[in-house]
Amino acid sequence: MTQDIPELDRLIACPNCDALHLDMPVPDGARARCLRCHTVLKAPRADAMTRIVMLAATALILMVAAVFFPFLDLSTHGLSHDSSIFDTVMAFSEGLLFPLTFAVGALIVVLPAVRLIALLYAIGPMMIGYTPARHAIPAFRLAQALKPWAMAEIFIVGTAVALVKIGGMATVSLGAAFWAFVALVLVTTLKDTFMCKLTVWKTMEERIR
């Protein structure tokens, strides 16, 4: 049954529809799509590893600034109140809403940060030296699994909506952390455009042997 199939490591199967393809080299900047469902299988970019590591490190530094610097400052009738992202997370820390504290904190700070650290750990050593770190495989798998749960960009849109809602009743000024957060979202998005999952996995596989 399988004798007319080439060696298994020369094949790739589309993760979306299971169609088999011969794994051909794809030039940097080009995309290889699945013939049947058109899912992008590979989209390698030049110097991707260096760029991913640099951008992930930048995002991580911005994250620290975003968490502790003042985020928004609200003033009305001579009263003023500023809050950091840390305060935002703690907004739910009373009564029944306590579990939401963990959820919101996880979605906007902890999971994005863990994802960045996992990526740095998985790809960093491969960029600097040659061999990946010891637990690079689970680290990269963790980074992939966390992708839908890191919601920093959604938080920014939520901030915009919140600003409109209170715009009528008070004056709001944007703090340094707000801009750090916007920059963080942009840097993270840029980093993701350099990320070709399949190329990273293959590179890791080759270098672990």
Binding site: I5, D18, L20
Partner: peptide
């Protein structure tokens, strides 16, 4: 396009990284 799937070829594919296995 008419393609063969990993399952039809008697193989199993990884949905995480696309590698094909026995």
């Amino acid at each position: 396009a008419r393609v063969q799937t990993a399952r039809a070829a008697g193989l199993v594919a990884c949905t995480g990284c696309g590698r094909v296995h026995r």
